[in-house]
Design a protein around this nucleic acid. Structure first.
Lengths: 145, 145
DNA sequence: TAACATCTTTACGTGAACGTAAAGGTAAGC
DNA sequence: GCTTACCTTTACGTTCACGTAAAGATGTTA
């Protein structure tokens, strides 16, 4: 711990944000490197490079998380990209803002629909499950089958 | 309202369950006939026939609803078919029942994950939306842009 | 220095879920 | 009897989201 180091710590040049390799992200989120490269090809990620190798920042990591969550909710990569683009564009013209609101509105409706679907399905799963368990008990007790 | 009609209303021979054509179902659920035929091809539906023409019962209609709800929640047709098969098989061997329970458990976990995703996304959408609205107000008030 | 682990690009292949003609049958209405 | 609307089958085409070699660069370890 000398003066130089301390100075470095507080200097702007020392902003070593943690970075990730493609393999790391691949493990963290349990996706293949192929997928991650594909998302980049589709314009959803743009990591920096160290020579040839891709270097992902924390921002990139967050982006990937967003992509995957979108996927789980049935968003296509194109939709997610559009959202990203709208979100990123800081020119934010009136038209863009309205498009954004339109999109959020639409997505919100979809999510509400999904909530409904999930509720219904949960109830059905419960019924099926208890029916199954009942029958299993019958089998185990009386060896009826 | 004469006696004859009353008798007919209560007679067993008058069980004309409502049926549907492929076109009707197509409109009701807003899917193409092609899709409905495809679901049949994949073993998810088996309507009766009147000559060549497909005739769908209420049960078939329910099935279709289930298929579509499954789709909205990210189930593949194959998965939904498996669920149908498990549910239908009234032989219900121990192994089948356990497979069913396994499947419901897995699906339940997925649904819970989706609920989480939806919550997070809803919050984010709220933020984005109010930010957009703020900016729009700015534009409309001061013509700042 | 040789072997590995991990990265890269290029490019063809694949499964799921339909889309889209093409060609024809059937029943209702003018 | 002709059109219109809806149904049918067959079959090839398409989009999305990757999978899967193949072949090579780079860096670390034995």
């Amino acid at each position: 711990m000398n003066v130089v180091k301390q100075t470095e710590k507080h200097s702007a040049s020392n902003k070593k944000e943690k970075t990730y390799s493609i393999g790391e992200l691949s493990k963290v989120f349990d996706v293949t490197p192929r997928s991650i490269r594909f998302y980049e090809e589709q314009g959803l990620l743009s990591p920096t490079r160290s020579g040839q190798t891709r270097v992902y920042s924390k921002k990139d990591k967050v982006r990937l998380k967003l992509i995957l969550r979108g996927k789980r909710l049935g968003f296509s990569l194109a939709e997610t990209r559009t959202l990203f683009n709208l979100y990123d564009s800081h020119q934010n013209s009136k038209i863009q803002l309205q498009a954004m609101l339109e999109m959020t509105k639409e997505k919100r409706a979809l999510l509400i629909q999904q909530l409904e679907d999930i509720n219904v399905l949960m109830i059905e799963l419960n019924e099926v499950e208890s029916r199954c368990q009942d029958e299993l008990e019958q089998i185990n007790k009386g060896k009826t089958a």
